[in-house]
Design a protein around this nucleic acid. Structure first.
Lengths: 298, 298
DNA sequence: ATGAAAGCGCTAACAT
DNA sequence: ATGTTAGCGCTTTCAT
């Protein structure tokens, strides 16, 4: 019998098996989209971890709240999926849609509910570190370009920036803080504002690399040199940013590891129903390249 | 009865349903990895199309041949999945592992088997167009940085380059053709070779953006200006390349659309068992920015 | 140890 | 139209 099984290369029908066991071995990851580098890396890490434990990973994108809500509902009620990885950076009602009696782990945003595990970057610390790097170089007039204010990580990175300034006895000026929308164009714009309003600054900390690049562009456009005149630091360490002129100093976040850890946590939740209060914080790493230097005399 | 169904917000158990119908509504997409922009966009397009038709999309990465083979075997034999989207750019034995009696569509590589549909970029035409753009600007000494020679698209892009040169009566010099490995470093290296061997050239066509950026870097490093001294054109139109100095001229491939079309084709294959010989070719689009210009007198 | 039977929650084919 | 039943391919329990 065993021989025949091998000879025919037989595999049990996964569906029937799921049916009998009440388990689908499917996990799902919901993200605003699947192509942003950050999300793609999380998904990749999660997929590898899932596969390593014998699970499959459904990738789902939900650009708007309605899709998000609907998708979560379907996935859970249809029992298509045994657990959910949700990537929702926004501080909005989506967090209320997250079921509490179902295995869910939140990625890249702290959970609102103590019973839902989450794995996030230590954004506040990272914001602090970036600012500290600039201060250590001798800067004291440091502009900040934030992302949209409805995202958790923006609040935290800003908090880190503010804490660092205050710990070094530097008074914050509200004109230094410009809000962007993560796009390079918004970085360009923010610097233009800064320049127009005559605010003096010798460094800018952009909360993501794309805005940092946009910021660098507008600095270069008006003839300012980076880093001789103005230092620029980004956040993410996207591929290619080291190939810019000058190579971008930035804060690297290891999204692959975050995705991996999130999937592992989810699987543990499923298999051991271990709903312990687990909120992982993953440290970021400063990557010093050529876009930051000592302040010039501008 | 109907009322109770609604009141309880009842959803049929997807697994039992699959069991009874013999359908899982799962598609799977296998790619070398999930985070390269090109792959991520394909997956995103496929996922959106799949969801639009009521299917779910499993994302799977298979970095090495063994994983690939194993994964395909499991996915199919376990009947976990109803159809496969395979992204395999390599000209290797993986193509032989692709089952013919199972719904599969090949993405970003032409299928070896006439019964397997595929959707690919018109790489040859795109290579031709990029070269033509340079020739139209007045260049006649055009270096080429290719990707690894074991990939389909490399062969085709190169073919387009060669055909364009020959159609314009330009004789090809083998020293102009440098092989890279898609990484920026290999682009840097290729230009260094070109420079060292004293080959004269006024433009370089890199078969992806990352190598183009690497190439630009080494040009700039030795004091050559882009595009005044040397023109550079890339391929892909990755995010951010328009923020480089100079903004990169490149060939845009609409991977989202390719993924979408591939998923639609797969679904048709499943639902109508329509195994018609369909090999889609999606056109690329030249995006002219600032890294290409008329040849200088170098 | 091996074999028989019940049942997982649906759908489809039947009978009323 | 409505209700009933067999069966999808496994796992698990119970009997041999």
């Amino acid at each position: 019998v065993e021989r025949v099984i091998n000879d025919l290369d037989f595999r049990p029908n996964a569906i029937a098996r799921s049916m009998a066991k009440g388990r689908s071995l499917n996990l799902a990851c919901i993200a605003p989209n699947l192509s942003d580098y950050t999300f793609a890396r999380i998904i990749e890490g999660a997929q590898v971890a899932a596969m390593g434990h014998g699970y499959y990973l459904l990738a789902a994108s939900a650009a708007v709240v309605e899709t998000f809500t609907h998708l979560i509902g379907e996935l859970i009620k249809s029992r298509h999926t045994e657990g959910l990885l949700v990537i929702n950076p926004y501080r909005d009602k989506r967090h209320l849609e997250i079921p509490i009696e179902f295995p869910v782990v939140l990625v890249a945003a702290a959970s609102r509910n103590p019973r839902t595990p989450s794995v996030v970057l230590s954004d506040q610390q990272a914001g602090f570190d970036a600012t500290k790097h600039l201060i250590d170089l001798g800067h004291s007039q440091i502009a900040l370009i934030t992302g949209p204010s409805n995202e958790d990580c923006v609040r935290n990175r800003t908090k880190g920036y503010l804490r660092c300034l205050s710990e070094h006895g530097i008074e914050t000026r509200t004109e230094w803080i410009q809000q962007g929308d993560w796009s390079p164009a918004s970085g360009t714009n923010a610097v233009r504002n800064l320049l127009n309003q005559g605010t003096s600054f010798s460094a800018v900390f952009a909360q993501n690399d794309r805005m940092a690049l946009g910021a660098m562009k507008s600095l270069l456009d008006v003839g300012l040199r980076v880093p001789q005149d103005i230092s620029v630091i980004g956040f993410d360490d996207m591929p290619l940013v080291s190939y810019f002129q000058p190579a971008l100093t930035t804060v690297r976040q290891d999204m692959y590891r975050i995705g991996q850890l999130a999937a592992q946590t989810l699987i543990q939740l499923i298999e051991q129903n271990n709903m312990s209060h687990t909120q992982f914080q993953i440290p970021a790493e400063l990557v010093i390249r050529d876009s930051t230097g000592h302040p010039g005399r501008i």
